[in-house]
Design a protein around this nucleic acid. Structure first.
Length: 320
DNA sequence: CATTCGTGAAGACGAAT
DNA sequence: ATTCGATTTCACGAATG
């Protein structure tokens, strides 16, 4: 495997027809790849950090309503559909209030009937096993995504992946939790804001190795063409966790770039490249970055950082 | 004392048989 | 399915400042 560049889109099937926003966006400054940042919901360049736009698409109403009457006339029906709910938010929900449309209390026998209706409605909504499966899995995905600060678009991608896995009968023999975790991991990579395996596994109920195994399985079965992650994509998050200077972060970016062009990254875990470059940059800028602290935020062992950072430095020296 | 560096054993993975 | 090579990790201890 040589390199990335070809980002195939997963969303093709949901957005059938509508061309998803011309997807190979590149930075006007340095021609780097445009990614969406998790914490700030901004689109920015993975290479130089240039912010392209800081407003995500708002699925809410495009009008303003100033009083109740206006709200009534302008209102359209229903919430936007979302893959985040197992039925896409489309099935009937019976409200919990025992009042009619006028706000009057309903009679006792009617109340009883309503209660039974709610019960049965709920049963029908999640009746067959795949629906129940989805309901639980999407709950897990949302829970983990929240814990990781993963933005909604990525959650939706994860949901879509999970649905596909379910449709393709990839579940039998595998835990829901496992596939949910793997879907989220895959989605984060597809969206260009990868969480490391360890980070995802940390909030999951299954371990890192199981996550990786399941991830590889569904990636292969679903033909998800996911390019190798670029170490630069991890850099920003690690750098901010370490509270290191912009200077160090920028230097680390340069180190990663030259290291990659020198081929140091091949066969190595991209996370370890990012961590090593960050440590190396810390040395060069006289920041107090110890192998230990870098290791802690990146979940890369000190040993690996030790072994890797001289190689990263050697690559840049040769480039001089 | 904290940090860095080096080692060998052990686990996981991809590729090849 | 097993085997092999490379990478990463763990647990030490030694050097360095």
């Amino acid at each position: 495997m040589t390199d990335n560049q070809t980002r195939t889109e997963l969303r093709g099937e949901t957005a059938a027809g509508q061309s998803t926003e011309s997807d190979v966006q590149t930075c006007p400054e340095c021609a780097g790849k445009i990614v969406t940042d998790s914490e700030t919901a901004e689109s920015l360049c993975a290479e130089c950090g240039l912010v392209i736009h800081d407003q995500q698409i708002d699925t809410g109403p495009e009008w303003r309503a100033f009083d109740a009457a206006e709200r009534e006339t302008k209102s359209r029906v229903g919430a936007p559909t979302t893959p985040l709910l197992h039925d896409r938010g489309l099935s009937t929900t019976i409200g919990w209030r025992n009042t009619d449309v006028h706000g009057n209390q309903v009679s006792a026998p009617k109340r009883k009937k309503l209660s039974r209706l709610r019960t049965w409605n709920e049963r029908f909504r999640t009746r067959d096993s795949s629906e129940r499966n989805l309901k639980q899995a999407l709950g897990e995905i949302n829970r983990m995504a929240s814990a990781l600060g993963v933005p909604d678009p990525t959650r939706e991608t994860a949901s879509v992946i999970y649905r596909r896995a379910l449709d393709d009968d990839l579940l039998p023999g595998r835990s829901i939790e496992g596939v949910a975790t793997a879907s989220l991991y895959a989605a984060s990579r597809l969206e260009g804001i990868p969480r490391s395996i360890d980070e995802v596994a940390a909030v999951s109920r299954i371990g890192a190795t199981e996550t990786k195994r399941t991830y590889r399985y569904i990636a292969r079965e679903l033909d998800l063409a996911i390019p190798p992650t670029n170490p630069i994509e991890y850099l920003g998050r690690f750098a901010s966790k370490l509270e290191c200077s912009d200077e160090t972060e920028h230097l680390a970016r340069k180190l990663v770039k030259t290291a990659i062009s020198a081929g140091v990254h091949s066969g190595r875990d991209p996370v370890s490249i990012a961590a090593s470059a960050l440590y190396a940059a810390g040395q060069l800028t006289n920041q107090q970055l110890t192998q230990k602290t870098v290791s802690e935020v990146s979940n890369v062992s000190e040993v690996t950082i030790r072994n890797r950072y001289p190689e990263v430095l050697a690559a840049t020296e040769e480039a001089e």
